[in-house]
Each structure stands twice: as structure tokens, then as C-alpha cells.
Amino acid sequence: MNFWKRLTVPAVLLLAVLASPAAAERPLLTIGVLKFGTATWELDTIRANRLDEEGGFALKLVELASNQATQVALQAKAVDMIVTDYLWVARQRAAGEALSFLPHSSAVGTLMVPASSPIKDVADLRGRRLGVAGTPLDKSWLLLKAYARERHGLDLEAESRPAFAAPPLLNQKVASGELDAVLNFWPYAARLEAQGMRAVIGVDELMRGLGAKVAVPAVGFTFREEWAKANPTLLAGFATASEKAKRILATSDAAWERLRPIMQAEDGATWTRLRDRYRAGIPAHWGDAERAEGAALYALLAKLGGRELVGDAPTLPEGTFWPSVRY
């Protein structure tokens, strides 16, 4: 409990529910988010278009400092939902904590190099200084290693020089020439594109190269199953609002102009790249094919990352994907 207090005071900011006479009459949905996280773009769109009112709920966002903090908040029942990847959801579910997931985004990372780099393909990473966002268990790194081995007979751990670091630092290092290439999360890759750097291969392409047939929304809105069963109408209203907001962001340039102040884009080129890469990750469908592909990707990652990545769940636990939402 003391750890939770440290996380929330004073770093956490409560964002007020949009003022409305009817707000007090609607059930409240509290979502824990990162202050500058890209998921807030969808949630802000829900509120700006009054999709929460239309869905019969009031939306409140709780800003937290890190992904770990959002996970702690959900586990402590301080929020109803957070945004995280379904690997964590599956691992928690396998450990006895019944969490479930609604899709948010299939946007993934990209392998980036300077425009003048001789690196044209994954095979060209042999002997190169390669920056990787996150840790050696990051799913993008696991997939890149598998792809390099299967397609090019290349052992990246042994035959390149990987270095693991935070995304902003990796962007600085590749810009200064201290790294030859970086495998970075999509918002940071978009910033490098805006600076004139070149994409070698996206993680979505790695997945297709390893057998994936449809895009998998790896990141989604996560909640406790007991909460969902106690609030089915609230959850259904949010799922509908979320889908409508996705469609707005996929088609409306005006919606993105309105979001410009909260996107933290350094310039117009960065804003455009962030918008376009976000749009590319909006799930067009969520049904049996996507669920099956998610289970197949999970099994592959479990094989690549082992127990350290997925715990005691080598296959996707039933209920990881909330069963009643499809579009």
C-alpha cells in the first residue's frame, strides 16, 4: 500500500470528467494512462465527440508515471482499466489474476537507419551496432532475432552488437552516429522518419515473414474480469465508443488537428508521421481471425522468450481476449 501511495502522490494528476449536468447520472469509468501516452489520443477523441455520453458513461483519466504504475493501479483496483499489451494480460491470467483485453492498436516498432546507411536488409546487421528499445525480452527483439535466423541464418546476439536502452536515448545515439541502427517503438521510429531516417523493416513485416496472416492488436484496454461481469453495460458502452473513436481518427484530418496540442510533436513533419503511423495501427477488424493470430503469435513468443517472458502459460489462456466484443 505504501508503494501505491508513493506512485500516486504527487505525480498522478486526475483529469476532470467533462462538465455536464448528466455526468453525475452516468456510471464512471476510470482509466489509468501515461501522461503523454498515445492511447490518450483515442480517449480524448471519445470525450471531444461526446461518445462517452452517447455510450451512457462518464470517462475519467488518471495520469500515471510508467507502465508499471498503471499495472499496479489496476491490480490495486484504483482504476477500472489501463492500456497494456496482451502478453502481460496472459501472464497475469495464467498466474490466477483474471484480467481481460479489448484491442486498442496494432502499431508496432520499426528497424531504423540513417538515410545514407548501407544497411538495406536484416542480413546487413551482421557486425553492426544495433540499439534495441526495452530489454532482451522485448517482443520486437525476439521477433527480429527469429526472422534473422530463419530468413538469413544470422544469429543477431552473436553476430551483431546489440545494446538495450530507453527509446529517447536510442534516437539520440543513432542520430549522433554511435549506433548503426535502432529497433525502436513506433512513436520514436516516427520521429526518426520525420528527421529523414529510413525504415528497413517493421515489426509487422517481421510477423508476416514468420507466418502471420493478419495484424494483431498487441496493445489494448485491460480490465479485471470481475469488474467486467459486474458492469456489462458500462463495458459495452466503452467498447462501442472506442470503436467509433478509432473510425474518427482513421478518417478525419480535423480530429488530428484538434489533437495537435497534446501530441508533443516537435514540428509539422513529426506530427504528420505520428498521425500516419498511428492510423496504420488502427485495427480494422477484431474477430476470430485476429484472435487466432493473436494466439499463434503468443505461442511463438512463448517459444522464443520462454518462461521468463510468459511465466507458466506456453499457450494463450482462455479469456485473455474479452469474448463478447467483435467488429
Rank of each mutant, 00 (worst) to 15 (best):
residue 111 L to R: 02
residue 56 G to A: 02
residue 99 L to P: 06
residue 54 E to L: 03
residue 72 V to E: 09
residue 74 L to K: 04
residue 61 L to E: 05
residue 100 S to M: 03
residue 111 L to K: 09
residue 110 T to D: 11
residue 52 D to M: 00
residue 70 T to K: 13
residue 65 A to D: 09
residue 50 R to C: 15
residue 60 K to Y: 05
residue 98 A to V: 08
residue 82 I to K: 00
residue 40 T to I: 15
residue 78 A to C: 09
residue 82 I to T: 10
residue 54 E to C: 13
residue 81 M to F: 08
residue 100 S to C: 07
residue 77 K to T: 07
residue 65 A to F: 07
residue 60 K to V: 08
residue 111 L to N: 13
residue 90 A to S: 12
residue 84 T to E: 13
residue 97 E to S: 10
residue 78 A to K: 12
residue 64 L to H: 00
residue 52 D to W: 04
residue 75 Q to A: 12
residue 59 L to A: 11
residue 89 V to G: 05
residue 58 A to H: 06
residue 84 T to V: 10
residue 84 T to N: 14
residue 103 P to A: 04
residue 54 E to P: 03
residue 82 I to L: 01
residue 80 D to W: 00
residue 65 A to Q: 12
residue 50 R to F: 07
residue 107 A to K: 10
residue 104 H to K: 12
residue 54 E to S: 07
residue 110 T to N: 09
residue 39 A to M: 05
residue 65 A to P: 13
residue 48 A to I: 14
residue 73 A to E: 01
residue 86 Y to M: 11
residue 77 K to V: 09
residue 66 S to E: 06
residue 105 S to V: 00
residue 67 N to G: 14
residue 111 L to C: 07
residue 81 M to L: 11
residue 46 I to D: 05
residue 101 F to I: 02
residue 43 L to K: 04
residue 78 A to Y: 09
residue 104 H to Q: 05
residue 72 V to H: 15
residue 86 Y to L: 03
residue 52 D to T: 04
residue 44 D to E: 14
residue 108 V to G: 12
residue 92 Q to V: 07
residue 87 L to C: 02
residue 60 K to W: 06
residue 89 V to L: 13
residue 51 L to Y: 00
residue 113 V to W: 04
residue 77 K to E: 10
residue 43 L to C: 02
residue 82 I to N: 01
residue 50 R to V: 12
residue 65 A to N: 10
residue 112 M to Y: 11
residue 94 A to K: 10
residue 46 I to G: 02
residue 44 D to V: 14
residue 77 K to P: 07
residue 66 S to L: 01
residue 84 T to G: 08
residue 66 S to H: 02
residue 93 R to H: 12
residue 107 A to R: 03
residue 66 S to G: 06
residue 39 A to N: 14
residue 47 R to H: 00
residue 68 Q to K: 13
residue 85 D to M: 14
residue 59 L to N: 02
residue 98 A to Q: 14
residue 43 L to Q: 01
residue 51 L to A: 15
residue 110 T to G: 07
residue 49 N to G: 12
residue 48 A to N: 11
residue 87 L to V: 13
residue 70 T to M: 04
residue 47 R to C: 14
residue 41 W to R: 09
residue 79 V to A: 08
residue 75 Q to M: 12
residue 110 T to A: 08
residue 51 L to W: 03
residue 107 A to W: 13
residue 96 G to W: 10
residue 99 L to M: 11
residue 43 L to M: 10
residue 112 M to T: 01
residue 112 M to N: 03
residue 78 A to H: 11
residue 50 R to H: 09
residue 98 A to M: 06
residue 95 A to V: 08
residue 79 V to Q: 00
residue 86 Y to S: 01
residue 74 L to A: 07
residue 61 L to I: 07
residue 51 L to N: 13
residue 99 L to T: 01
residue 70 T to W: 07
residue 42 E to K: 14
residue 56 G to M: 05
residue 110 T to Q: 07
residue 59 L to M: 00
residue 47 R to D: 03
